[in-house]
Computed example of a mutant assay.
Amino acid sequence: MQPTHSPVVISPKFSVCAALVAVTLWSIAPLLVELARDTAPLQLTALTLLAGALATLPLSRRAATQTCSLGWRLSVWLGIPLLIVGAVSSYFIGMRLAPAAEAALITYTWPVLFVLLSQWSRWGRLQWASVAGALIAFSGAAILLLPQALSGGVGGSASGYGLALLAACCWALYSWLGQAAPISLTPLLPRLLLIACALTCIASVWLEGDVALPRGEALVAGIALGLGPYGIAMVAWDKALRFGHASLVGSLAYGVPILAALLLVLAGMSVFDWRLPTAALLVVVGCLKAGR
């Protein structure tokens, strides 16, 4: 599957502004997830995806999916909803099992994975700079785990870190499909989010029992997650990918872990530690190196 670029000519400033909107909204996601900590993660995921579908509903319109190959139709209508469910639910669960700021930082290594996927799909090989950047970025994530590993293991946090990495892989694949797809995902996003919401509801009933609507602060946080980070931000990111340069757009996402960690510290939901800014800096440097 090769990337297909739109013939529409749009100012590069549009893609940059759209990417910045997505980055800003993604940065507040960890804070909102912490506010909804008392809600079961799959129930929170379903609420978030439903709110995201409603937020993007005005953008819904018919798309010529029938002109796509069977492989692409399966990728769009099944693969992308599964990636959305995997990304959002893994992120939410990971932040329950591991410290929020560290889990968020690991999840936001996804831009470097996206760059590697883009290069491989376009040229069939990886550039050394990209591999070196990936190693630098993941060394930042390793700094967060090293003290716990040396003291006898990461314990229960290991599952949280693993799920955060799984969320990163899902977001990288989602972004790559959004860039490579022969049609824009924006007009399909409300339906894709509804499909993902339905899949999550089934999983929630099966694994968590009865579905109950969150209340109070958790309800507001869940709706805000859907409207912002998983609604408007996803539309903005899709537009940025379709009409911008992949490396430039991807590089703007590298500031998300720093902004997210800063907001958590300022809100008193995470303790400032020298490892956190050091790891965030390594992730950003590594992603910039890979993006070049």
Rank of each mutant, 00 (worst) to 15 (best):
S159L: 15
V284D: 02
G250D: 00
L25N: 05
A280Q: 04
P3L: 07
L263W: 09
L207Q: 14
V85I: 09
S69Q: 11
P190A: 05
W77C: 11
L193R: 05
A19G: 06
C17E: 11
L105D: 05
T45D: 00
P111N: 12
A55G: 03
L192T: 04
A158D: 03
T107H: 15
T107I: 07
L54T: 12
R61F: 08
Q148W: 04
G250F: 04
S204A: 15
R73D: 06
T109H: 11
A100G: 09
G255I: 14
D273K: 12
A224D: 05
P147V: 07
G178K: 01
I195V: 13
L241D: 03
R242S: 09
G209W: 07
L282Q: 02
F114L: 14
A134Q: 00
T48I: 02
S151Q: 15
G178C: 07
L135A: 15
L150P: 10
W171D: 00
I93W: 01
A164D: 00
A198S: 15
P30D: 01
A137L: 01
A141T: 06
F14P: 03
F14W: 13
T65R: 11
Y108G: 10
L74S: 14
S204K: 01
I223G: 03
R62M: 08
S270K: 06
P147S: 04
T48S: 13
D38A: 15
V220D: 02
L262V: 13
L146I: 14
T45A: 03
L97I: 03
P12D: 00
L44N: 03
I93K: 03
H245F: 12
V205K: 09
Q2C: 12
R292C: 07
A149Q: 11
K13M: 15
G255A: 10
Y254P: 01
G140D: 00
Q179S: 14
V23T: 12
V16E: 06
T45E: 00
A46K: 05
F114D: 05
I143Q: 00
P187T: 07
T109R: 10
A142Y: 06
L225T: 03
L207G: 12
R125L: 09
G226F: 09
Y230Q: 12
A261M: 05
L288K: 07
Y108I: 07
A290M: 02
S251P: 13
V256P: 07
S121M: 13
G222R: 06
V33L: 13
S11Y: 06
G222Q: 07
A180G: 03
A167H: 02
G52V: 03
W77H: 15
A103N: 10
G156Y: 08
A246R: 12
S75T: 15
V16W: 08
S89V: 08
F114R: 05
A158N: 04
A221G: 10
P187R: 03
A180N: 12
C68E: 10
L163V: 07
W128P: 11
A132D: 03
